[in-house]
Design a protein around this nucleic acid. Structure first.
Length: 680
RNA sequence: GGCGAGGUAGCUCAGUUGGUUAGAGCGUCGGAUUCAUAACCCGAAGGUCACGAGUUCAACUCUCGUCCUCGCUACCA
């Protein structure tokens, strides 16, 4: 008997700023769901936690743009995301949200506890405030003249001309880069998490799995990329990070001086796991602390690789500093899923959206689960293509799994009116086949516990392959007339395989598992006794026809029919003519070009603008050789504030056109134009 | 540029602490079969394990260097 354990399993909180696509599923939610379904089938005590991350500036900006409240934005997206999960078969114990009251209280209390312990440092500074946009400006959103060297275009944090570090308040004639207006000074303070103080124990923990002198986990079980990235951060030295922001959408900072401030996302969001657990526990008569404060509980975070440092470093610091909480025993981060040769991109609409898939290919959840798990980016980036989807569904689900179950049931109906036949004398071969069932089952379980879900699924499929082989080898259709008793045994064995299959595939293909049990009349109780009546077989999977995948590929490539380039970015907000006239764009000739001495991507150009000869630093070194561009006429934005780039002052900006692949081209006049000619 | 992860059959990927002929699934080709959604089953072909050196009796595996891909980051206004 396996030991029953308690598990808290989290999946990264999706940001409620848009719907879910296949990359999200393959990255975190599907592997988490598979793991949880397996753990539960083994009788473990599991809380599977997720929810919407609903705070942050991006949501307030979107609300402003759409003319509604942030709450309306997150309400809409929370519903879409939640329904996508439900319909797809990702079965959280709770899908919560960070805008809920219990979350605000939990996060707030957590902050207070750490605050009272003196875990934070507080920095009070005068910061610039943009009155038009009603917000504080981060240092680099303020520019002005350097007080030390008098050069223009210094940034709020540093003058790149003389290299001196600055405070934005020291700048002469400061300007907000948001509104272009002069910001006002307002005092503000923020709290910082001094991560540098935690380097020592983190190193031990990541490297050796040792926490407070105890072996907390086995680091060889962690994925290489997770340990690698965490160590890379730690070895480079951790910096204090501010954990509050001047914003009004989020969890209010609950201490003196916290007015008008909220907790920053990576303090707020992971605590969402805790608050969701609390809600779930109170709804279900559980004690949430069992899931977060008992060191026999395994805490496991499923995330994508973009989230590694949050879950491998920052959140563990918060949990440990708090003192009562357990730390994760594993953080199985996946890499990224690509789509038809390109990265998923919301802005370019290069994506397969989960809610659209569910609508356009109804009742094919398990097919998508199977394919996404088969290609899950467990150790490296991987790629989803519709042709591969079609091939896997048709050649594996239909041909191997669906076919085996179907032929077993069809044969039983044909020969024995769909009643489970009596198992007679078994041959060595029968026994060997029967023995391999638990072997495969154990192997699948082991692989799942090692977070090797794609291997586990492949292993599960070997049982269906074995079933097909068993039928092909024993050929019951040939011997029915001569040896009915033998056929009874063969089909009895086949039906046992079918039933075992329904259990083994449960974590991967839950709907299919249920279908098999229903067909076998075993959905309420297991009954494979002689004479048990089976239901009429229905096909588990149907072939995906060419026109279906062609339509999907078409849709992807022509996501906007009237657009000749489907990958072109959407238009920016409308401007008025005055906005345009502020730009002074001229034709200029490149007189000289050389590689920037301390930079890979930069060229130092000398151009004749017709009104002067000036130096411009441009990030085009990967696209043009210096000697090839001398004499070329190009477009230059000449009234852009000068800026020091990697030690060289750049006065203006060369305009470049960018293709889909990131390739660059000059914007040049088609015939020679006098230098200084205006572009308008 | 720095750091991290990769580069293995046409495709998607496994390869544990270096040890005989480098594996799986799909695809391809051939065979067999007809209970089954022209499905299943058997067999074969197919790889200088990115490239170059080195350590070793022995390297896909260890060391160094080079090239390429992805991520983070420094410098693309």
């Amino acid at each position: 008997m396996k030991e029953k354990k308690r598990y808290t399993i989290t999946a990264a909180l999706p940001y409620a700023n848009g719907p879910l696509h296949l990359g999200h599923l393959a990255g975190a939610y599907l592997p988490a769901d598979i793991f949880v379904r397996y753990l539960k089938s083994e009788g473990n005590d599991v809380a599977f936690i997720c929810g919407s991350d609903e705070h942050g500036a991006a949501i307030t900006l979107r609300a402003k743009k759409e003319g509604c409240t942030p709450q309306e934005i997150v309400d809409k997206n929370h519903t879409i995301i939640k329904n996508s999960f439900t319909d797809f078969g990702i079965h959280f114990d709770i899908y919560h949200r960070t805008s809920s009251e219990i979350h605000h209280k939990t996060a707030s209390d957590f902050f207070k506890t750490l605050y009272n312990k003196g875990s934070f440092t507080k920095e009070t500074t005068e910061q610039f405030f943009d009155e038009e946009h009603q917000q504080f400006l981060a240092d680099r959103y303020v520019t002005g003249t350097c007080p030390k060297c008098n050069s223009a275009g210094a940034y709020g944090d540093q003058c790149e001309k003389c290299g001196s570090s600055l405070n934005p308040t020291e700048l002469i004639n400061p300007l907000s880069t948001l509104s272009g207006k002069t910001p006002v000074l307002k005092e503000t303070s923020h709290w910082y998490l001094p991560m540098n103080k935690h380097e020592d124990w983190l190193k031990q923990w990541i490297d050796k799995g040792i926490l407070d002198n105890q072996q907390q986990h086995n680091p060889t079980e962690w994925r290489k990329q997770v340990i690698g990235q965490c160590k890379s951060w730690i070895d480079n030295g951790l910096q204090p990070r501010s954990i509050t922001r001047d914003l009004d959408w989020g969890v209010k900072v609950p201490v003196e001086g916290g007015e008008g401030k909220v907790l920053y996302v990576w303090f707020d969001a992971p605590i969402g796991y805790i608050s969701a657990t609390k809600q779930w526990a109170s709804d279900n008569g559980k004690n949430w602390e069992d899931f977060w404060k008992d060191n026999k509980t395994q805490l496991i975070h499923f995330i994508g690789k973009d989230n590694i440092v949050f879950h491998g470093i920052i959140f563990p610091i918060l949990l440990k500093e708090h003192g009562e909480f357990i730390l994760p025993t594993n953080v199985p981060a996946n890499e990224f899923l690509n789509l038809e040769g390109d990265k998923f991109s919301t802005s370019r609409n290069w994506a397969v959206w989960v809610h659209e898939y569910l609508e356009e290919l109804p009742n094919r959840q398990d097919e998508l689960r199977y394919v996404l798990n088969a290609i899950a980016p467990e150790t490296k980036d991987s790629e989803f293509t519709w042709k591969d989807y079609q091939a896997r569904v048709n050649n594996e689900l239909v041909a191997i799994l669906g076919n085996f179950v179907n032929r077993s049931l069809v044969l039983t109906h044909k020969y024995f009116e769909g009643k489970v036949p009596k198992i007679g004398n078994t041959t060595d071969y029968d026994n060997e086949v029967l023995r391999s069932i638990p072997t495969i089952q154990n192997k699948v379980g082991e692989l799942i516990m090692q977070f090797r879900f794609r291997d586990a699924q492949t292993e599960a499929m070997t049982l269906a392959r074995l079933g097909n082989k068993y039928l092909a080898d024993t050929e019951p259709w040939k011997i029915f007339k001569t040896d009915e008793e033998r056929v009874k045994t063969i089909l009895s064995v086949s039906l046992q395989i079918c039933f075992s299959l329904s259990n083994i595939i449960l974590p991967f293909l839950p709907a299919t598992s249920k279908k098999i049990k229903t067909m076998m009349g075993c959905d309420k109780e297991i009954n494979l006794n002689e004479g048990h009546q089976l239901n009429q077989p229905i096909l588990l999977f149907e072939k995906v026809e060419d026109d279906v995948v062609e339509k999907q590929i078409d849709k992807l490539r022509n996501s906007n029919k009237n657009q000749s380039n489907p990958k072109a970015k959407a238009m920016k907000n409308e401007i008025i003519f005055d906005d345009f006239t502020k730009l002074d764009i001229r034709i200029a000739t490149i007189l000289a070009a050389e590689k920037h001495p301390d930079a890979d991507k930069l060229l130092k150009l000398t151009v004749d603008t017709g009104i002067d000869v000036r130096t411009i630093v441009s990030g085009i070194a990967e696209h043009y050789k210096p000697e090839d561009i001398i004499g070329k006429q190009v477009s230059v934005l000449i009234n852009l504030a000068p800026r020091k780039i990697r030690g060289i002052e750049s006065k203006g900006m060369i305009l470049m056109a960018e293709g889909n692949q990131g390739n660059l081209a000059f914007v040049s006049p088609e015939i020679k134009i006098d230098n200084g000619g205006e572009v308008r």
